[in-house]
């Protein structure tokens, strides 16, 4: 009795989570069947926990933008700009001088703050354009995405920035108690966002605005301000993803992760987020993320080319759209 009510609460009202779990198990079974000796290795799952977080955080950011019926096409631009800005900062203070570990840690901290700061600032710009100037989210973030990527090109001149301090790389490559640091960060971020969306006024308001913007305004919700906050959040999350990405690869470049945009949208939609607004859960996005990471790692082991994996991602997106349409037409 107790168990079933807890399960019901976690699964929620929609059958979406259940469907996702089934997809995940199917993908897992298929991949284990296709590469029995290589897929089921500890090493494979460990590497997934390193690659997954940056994409997962971007997908959660995308979901937050979709809650109000918007979209954020600038997340990848923000992520790269955040990593590059920190990289430029490290080059200006650390290279050439041998400093004590304390100083390096301090500089790394400043670098993280700078990266998160630029993410927040980028989010403020998006929020301002969308909620105050009333530009459609698609076009506003398309434009700012170009600006952020463009600024990243201007800062680097094109090539990648390499040589981050060890403490920075620990964020993307390290281990805490045998678990990947980025994975722990992902769990913390996902948990925080989940609480924010379900337990705070801001989160509930965002859902209500997404469900019916007009009714939300007549009910006295401060729509503009809430949408503004939601884009600040996506900017901040994108910057966190940027820090993890540059920490993992020990490099930052203006065109890293270009295919992440499609993948983040795909994971958000697959996770049960309604792009028209009003519906989206962190748990759904997280399960969708795991399903797709298993899928892509399996195909990589099968030596599919990256182009074909892009094809599979796109095909999966279309398949999910069709599936969701059929499920909704049942009711």
């Amino acid at each position: 009795m107790q168990n079933s009510s807890i399960a019901k609460r976690i699964l929620g009202q929609d059958r979406n989570i259940l469907q996702l779990l089934v997809i995940t198990v199917l993908v897992f079974a298929l991949m284990s069947y296709l590469n029995p000796d290589k897929f089921l290795r500890y090493y494979n799952f460990e590497s997934i926990t390193y690659i997954m977080p940056e994409l997962g955080i971007l997908a959660i950011a995308m979901m937050i933008a979709m809650l109000t019926g918007g979209i954020d096409l600038s997340v990848v631009g923000i992520a790269n700009l955040a990593g590059i800005l920190a990289g430029v900062f490290f080059h200006s203070v650390i290279i050439g001088t041998s400093q004590s570990t304390g100083m390096v840690l301090l500089y790394t901290g400043i670098g993280v703050l700078m990266a998160l700061g630029i993410g927040l600032l980028a989010g403020v710009l998006n929020g301002f354009l969308i909620s105050k100037l009333r530009i459609t989210p698609i076009l506003a973030t398309l434009g700012t995405g170009q600006i952020f990527t463009g600024l990243a090109v201007v800062l680097t001149g094109g090539p990648a920035i390499v040589g981050f301090p060890d403490a920075w790389n620990f964020i993307g490559n390290g281990k805490i108690l045998g678990i990947a640091t980025p994975f722990i960060l992902f769990v913390v971020v996902a948990g925080a966002v989940a609480i924010l969306l379900t337990r705070t006024t801001l989160g509930v308001n965002l859902m209500l605005i997404g469900t019916n913007p007009r009714a939300a305004i007549f009910a006295g919700l401060r729509k503009d301000r809430m949408i503004f906050y939601s884009y600040m959040m996506t900017g901040l999350l994108a910057a966190i993803a940027g820090v993890i990405l540059s920490g993992r690869t020990n490099a930052a470049k203006s065109d890293y992760g270009a295919s992440y945009l499609l993948q983040a949208i795909l994971i958000a939609v697959l996770g049960g987020t309604n792009p028209a607004g009003g519906k989206g859960r962190v748990l759904g996005v997280s399960i969708a993320l795991i399903a797709l990471m298993l899928l892509s790692s399996g195909f990589q082991i099968l030596r599919f080319s990256n182009h074909l994996i892009d094809f599979i991602w796109g095909g999966f997106l279309l398949l999910v759209i069709a599936l969701n349409a059929f499920r909704n037409s049942d009711r």
Partner: peptide
């Protein structure tokens, strides 16, 4: 976004 990715992926792959 999906169809674009499918077509380009197939073309290059």
């Amino acid at each position: 976004l999906g169809t674009g990715s499918v077509v380009r992926g197939l073309l290059l792959g």
